[in-house]
Design a protein around this nucleic acid. Sequence first.
DNA 1: GGCAACATGTAACTTGTTACATGATTCC
DNA 2: GGAATCATGTAACAAGTTACATGTTGCC
Lengths: 177, 177
Amino acid sequence: MALAEAILVCLTERPMSGYDLAKNFDASIGFFWRASHQQIYRELGRLREKGYVLSEEVSQNGKPNRIIHTLTPAGKKALRDWSTKPAKHPSLKDDLLVKFYALENVDLDALKDQMTIRIEQHQTKLVKYVRIKERYYDGKDLDLTQKGKLIVLEQGILQESQTIERLEDMMVKLGNL
Amino acid sequence: MALAEAILVCLTERPMSGYDLAKNFDASIGFFWRASHQQIYRELGRLREKGYVLSEEVSQNGKPNRIIHTLTPAGKKALRDWSTKPAKHPSLKDDLLVKFYALENVDLDALKDQMTIRIEQHQTKLVKYVRIKERYYDGKDLDLTQKGKLIVLEQGILQESQTIERLEDMMVKLGNL
DNA sequence: GGCAACATGTAACTTGTTACATGATTCC
DNA sequence: GGAATCATGTAACAAGTTACATGTTGCC
């Protein structure tokens, strides 16, 4: 289970509230590990119990109070330990490909529409990644952590553009049946 | 939830036992939808209750009895209905990329080892796909369903080889830090 | 005799999703 | 006045994992 670790990874950057984390999981780290705010709050509770994070309430003028979670030395150690354990193969589950597996029992027009939507989703992602790269990484001096993030970002950019190409190819094949 | 539908899709091909389905989820359809035998048996129970499959015990000489599940017309209809509903974005969760996100808090040598293993896993998959294509699809006359499977298979082959390239590129970058 | 493959399941637990619940501030 | 964003959570349920449980046949 790497949700715990994904949260710890986020907190290496800076202490954050559950809300901040949820936004992060919608943006940066969420590009390859998605989690809802409910999951994050539940997991934060467990991390607190284990002593991997320290949670402190901070009052803000006007706005509701925030609870800021800070990575503890124990949390940092847990993260390093986890990093040495073998990575699991990523879980793959794709509706769309399942549908291709029984073309005779499927609505082909609906499938084409879904392909179009899927392609657009990947294009949106691609644009997002490229913008982030240009804004935060291009032409900057980077430390080790930033270099790691850049590697992932560049791999994401490649992956998205290749995925789009493959989906477009599938669309053509679907049209020529 | 598409596990139910993935099972129904498998059963369009031919009636099968839970054991057969589990093997299928280890091989063909499992390339983009993984499920354990426990999940499959549980789901088969539900599909039976809904009337989407018909389950009949068949005795075999010597071997333990098998329970053969057949897709019903209601199941076929459910499948077509499902096919028109929007596909979900595939769930992405990748340990390995999470680890890249906090390079300073991670064991770099261990990470490299994990990358090597990951690359090998994709190579194994690639070989498997290519063999299946050669053995069952190349130079054959194909019906609609087989054509759909071939499309997925070819997209899988491309995906795997591109993934291997990207991972190798990441390895090089990791070495040059 | 032992191991792999065949064959089907239950139980306990962890993860992930959907819906509900509340309340403040800021911008239009 | 209404919508969006900020901010935190609970409850119920669905899906996925791990461990347990049992018994056969066929091959070496």
